[in-house]
Amino acid sequence: MKLDNNVKNALFEFLLRMGDDRLILGHRLSEWCGHAPVIEEDIALGNIALDLIGQASAFLNFAAGVEGKGRTEDDLAYFRNETEFKNLQLVEQPNVDFAHTIVRQYFFDVYSNLVLTNLTSCPVNELAGMASKSLKESKYHLRHSKQWLLRLGDGTDLSNEKTQNAVNNLWRFTKEIFDIDETEKLLIEKGIVPEMSGFREKWLDSINKTFMEAKLKLPEDNLDFSAGSRNGFHTEHLGHLLAEMQILARSYPGAKW
């Protein structure tokens, strides 16, 4: 598919967003390795982390190709600075505890399923292919996080309290998920990314249903908080994460192991 330069730039941006979401969330989940509450869950979180990093690798590799400046997926992952990362603020939030991890994951999984399902009908074949491969994984991730959310919310008083607390803390990072900016508008207009209107409603609808069942309350809608992570604005947590994630590649450029 032959693309104009401005469309190409927009597609590059969009692929960075998809890739960065998964890279950063994957890294966050990997921090649980050896620390999860039970060994089965340790393995489960590790599996999901690996899935997400695999997806990130595919999106960033394609992004590097679209950009056409000779960068590789590793250059994009390890040699960009904080403000050049386009992931959602939601996914960079720290693990805090198991409840925060599961709530963050559930919010992302519902969103990810919507976006990936949508992208499977994208006319850019590579992107459609990546989306349908990732969607399979993402469906399992959603099943995992949803089942946990139901059990934590509708578990003991303490597990409910911790989960509600996590919901309240993370809620403000969910609004920007559905902001559609010029980049996405252009891609939608050119028919590269299918129409995404109504996503927030669908997302809210799923969250609502699960919350009812999990005996969790949707926080008051005080969502005037629009974060702008898609343009490189982040919370303080991303820098620390990147320092750890990138130090090896930056200290020993080209290292192989």
């Binding site: 089965e40 869950e41 393995i43 089942q147």
Partner: peptide, 17 residues
């Protein structure tokens, strides 16, 4: 074998392990 609180979680753990 796996440890799990209920059948659905047992299936998920079995899948992951």
């Amino acid at each position: 074998s796996v440890h799990a609180p209920d059948p659905e979680m047992a299936l998920q753990n079995a899948r992951d392990v």
